[in-house]
Simulated assay, not measured.
Amino acid sequence: MTNTATSSRNLFEPVALGPLTLPHRLVMAPLTRNRATAEGVPTPLMATYYAQRASAGLIIAEASTPNAVGQTYPNITAIHSPAHVAGWRMVTDAVRAEGGRMFLQIQHGGRAGHPDTSGLTPVAPSPIALPETIHTPAGRVPSVVPREMTAEDIASTVADFASAARNAVDAGFEGVEVHSANGHLLHQFLAQGTNRRTDAYGGSVAHRVRFVVEVTEAVAAEIGPERVGLRVSPGNTVNGIEEGDTEEIYPALLAALAGRGLAYLHVVHADPEDAVFQRIRKDWPGTLVANPVLPADRIPDDGGHAQADRLLAAGADVIALGRPFLANPDLIRRMRTGAAVNQVRDAYLMYVGGETGYTDYPALDAGE
């Protein structure tokens, strides 16, 4: 895949991504929905949810933790035990039966965790607490100061990501997405505001990108680089992140990984007019997945089609949509035909468990 902007790209034409040929350029972005067990095991309800959305070119399943201390919130999924593998196998089997394909996002929360949820003190590059409350089984509570990771912690976490990737393939996923975005652990190492280290993992840009590079390389060595994507969110301030030198971090990170043969790079909140996005497209030699900025209060009437076309014209190869797939299990059919889209009923229902606001969004009737 070249990095030349091609305005004639069709959203509904096949496209190569790693070892796969996707039937079209629309993929489902990872969406945490808190429907797993307290131990992080996927449930039959989750298999139903994902199978309903199997018409996506690829489903990038919700963030799953590579170890216990990486857990962020209650009832999120994990991928570090045989029970997790078996639960996810149930999901991938259901999606494959409907003709779909799946990658699994692997995410370590870093300081975005709490002992009331995981039973463990969170770890992070530096002992700087999340500057906000955090959701736990007992409700929202003040965040705690994380423990600064030692060299041994860093090495074991790199190994945990690689092991989680192997587990994901064993669970039936076609590949994995390494989550280095949205203020979680890998992003915390990139950002000046959360990384105050003075060793080989902090200080200069070259040092701050090192952990992300090591994790990505270890995962690629374990399952093959063609099965590995990387997700980034340049300039994103969620979870109290302050990068400080966004324009320097991402060119350095991409330079370190551009020749590794990864399946894709996934840019969150991509804006075709943004200089950093334009630089990323110029620098990244492989497949670029772009997650567009959509209105916070509603899904566009076209499901995001216009924004997708803008990003394709700016050089993106694949478009990842989140909320449009959440509320529309048959989003691909609706976008192909111009049918009306469902709106998200209530954002609260995204995270409270059960079928409501999860598997009960209607698809079009056969005659529509």
Rank of each mutant, 00 (worst) to 15 (best):
E214D: 15
T237A: 14
V228Q: 05
A306F: 00
N167I: 08
D360M: 03
S143D: 11
R196H: 15
L186C: 13
A5Y: 09
V344F: 05
A112D: 06
D116V: 02
E177M: 08
A97I: 00
G203C: 08
A63Y: 10
F103E: 04
E242L: 09
Y201E: 07
R345S: 12
E273N: 12
P19R: 12
L120Y: 12
A151L: 15
L45K: 02
A347V: 11
L349N: 08
M28E: 12
R53A: 12
L349A: 11
D317W: 01
H135E: 14
H305Y: 14
E214C: 02
P74A: 01
L254Q: 06
T48F: 00
A151N: 13
P44W: 03
N182C: 00
E368A: 14
I59C: 07
V169G: 09
L20A: 14
R196F: 00
F173Q: 06
V228R: 02
V209M: 06
T77K: 00
H135N: 11
V215Q: 05
N3H: 12
T21Q: 14
F161C: 05
F173T: 04
N67G: 00
G322L: 04
W284R: 11
V41C: 02
N195Q: 03
T6R: 14
A313T: 12
P142T: 09
T21R: 13
R227W: 01
L230Q: 04
L288V: 06
E355R: 14
I128W: 01
I134F: 09
V169I: 15
N75G: 04
A270P: 13
D301I: 05
R345H: 12
N236P: 00
G70W: 02
L22C: 03
H187E: 15
L11R: 09
R310Q: 15
G100Y: 04
S81Y: 04
P23I: 04
A61Y: 03
A36K: 02
A320M: 06
T157V: 14
M1D: 11
Y351W: 14
F189E: 11
P225G: 02
T72Y: 06
P122W: 00
E222L: 07
V289S: 06
S55P: 00
